[in-house]
Design a protein around this nucleic acid. Structure first.
Lengths: 266, 266
DNA sequence: CGGTCAATTGAGCAAGATCAAACGTAGTGG
DNA sequence: CCACTACGTTTGATCTTGCTCAATTGACCG
């Protein structure tokens, strides 16, 4: 994805969007349609005030930015939306939510003045969560290319670092989902499936796993006691889904394991 | 903290360290003491192979890197260690652990060939978790300054982005700790304390909180049902620690609330 | 071949989920 | 301004899940 110009000409990609600005977002208030420098954004303790996106001495030009209003209950961006800019909360209150198949939702965070929103999409180029205003809010939107974009892109080593850090954020979000929403059985199944998938991606067998960690370590990773981990693995064995031999686990029925995760995760 | 030269001359800061290399880490094997370019690191599906730290066309010079061996059970780095370099797992298996006061430990992840280790320390300049080898392992260490370092530092806007992403990683790790190790009572107490602290840092009252979110949203954030959240708040009220009025919560006894979190978090 | 540590399995118990009902608050429209 | 409605909150009763305690078995190492 390339840099999106301050005046956006790309058509909305999401069916929920029906106008020039995202649903629930009005045109710039203090700023004109052409992006302002937004030097009034001086927020205490802010993670990333827009002012800090200004260039330092010897740097290139500042990233263009502008202000938007978001009404209560409306989305600043939604899961799947193409990445267009980073947001700093100027006033109000947001929640970020990952929608889950089961209807329940995972609230990944609450965000108030000074907090950064939207960094989740820097690498994948599309947002992985909804950002919903819990009250009338204002944000500062800073237009910045994704790490692969040609303009304003950082030097190569840092692009890789961005990717690595972004990958870690994604991994942690997945783990939060496991810890916050899944039952013991589902957690262990998800753990085994994740391990299988990662091993497969590296050229190892995805079905013959050699566990390098103890049941206690698995438990500490999944928020369970070691006895519970052991019991769940035994349950999978009794169901004919895995075969076990001490630290070695053979997955006989990958789909059966997926079925154990249930409707929460797809 | 500044860039640490490939040949390290700084004294170990951690009492657990007793030699030139971190405990359990032997001198470079394939590479000589002076860092090699390590072009043999071509790992499939890797998040950040050392090769990718090479400069692209028109970039500055590559970051120096070298290889280390880590024996089973030994630490690649430990919580509190000064940040010196980023690691890519070449072979073997690691766990990353956040030590917790209560003796239990939070395993934040398992890491195999191709995974990046150590990015947690890029901003704070010191590691926030232990990285322990679960079997005989090899890593590629890439020397890179922290985002505030003078050498190899990225342009300013990206430094801010690094900080923001790093902050998000820290926040998520804190939440994983809450989701994985705390009981309902402790989770709600930690949530209220966190909200209080963040509001205080922004100039609002840290004791008179106006909750913008519903009990259900708090529950979805903490991995609890909304009834449980309500019950815990009622318990705090009955204990004389908070006063409640619908969406408004007044904290009467901050220390009392901290006492509820118990020994797990300090 | 003990010794140590990890894993398994069982029994009882407590924390939290679930189901259900009553109550408060905010918002709407007459 | 008030009544009505919708939704959020509180509280209670019951039940399930997973934790705790305990004993046994199994693997690995000198």
């Amino acid at each position: 994805m390339d840099m999106i110009a301050p005046v956006r000409t790309d058509a909305p990609r999401d069916p929920r969007r029906d106008g020039f600005f995202p649903a629930g977002i009005t045109a710039p208030t203090a700023a004109s349609a052409s992006p302002s420098r937004c030097s009034i954004c001086k927020l205490r303790e802010a993670d990333l005030p827009c002012d800090l996106l200004r260039p330092g001495p010897g740097q290139r030009e500042a990233l263009p930015s502008t202000h938007w209003r978001v009404r209560q209950g409306e989305a600043l961006f939604r899961c799947g939306d193409a990445f267009s800019c980073l947001y700093t909360v100027r006033s109000g209150f947001f929640k970020t939510v990952m929608p889950v198949a089961s209807g329940r939702e995972l609230v990944t965070g609450f965000h108030m003045a000074g907090d950064l929103l939207g960094a989740d999409a820097l690498v994948a180029q599309s947002h992985v969560c909804d950002a919903i205003a819990l009250e009338e809010s204002q944000v500062c939107a800073s237009f910045i290319s994704g790490v692969d974009g040609p303009d304003h892109a950082p030097p190569l080593p840092y692009r890789q670092l961005f990717k690595a850090m972004s990958a870690q954020i994604s991994r942690q979000q997945g783990l939060m989902l496991v810890l916050g929403m899944l039952r013991a059985e589902e957690r262990v199944a998800a753990f085994l499936l994740g391990l299988s998938q990662r091993l497969g991606a590296r050229g190892y067998s995805p079905t013959h796993l050699k566990l390098r960690m103890t049941r206690r370590e698995i438990g500490c990773h999944l928020g369970l006691e070691l006895e519970t981990v052991s019991r769940m693995i035994s349950k999978f064995r009794e169901a004919g889904i895995v075969e076990t031999g001490y630290r070695r686990i053979q997955i006989l029925d990958l789909d059966g394991l997926r079925r154990f995760i249930g409707p929460t995760m797809a």
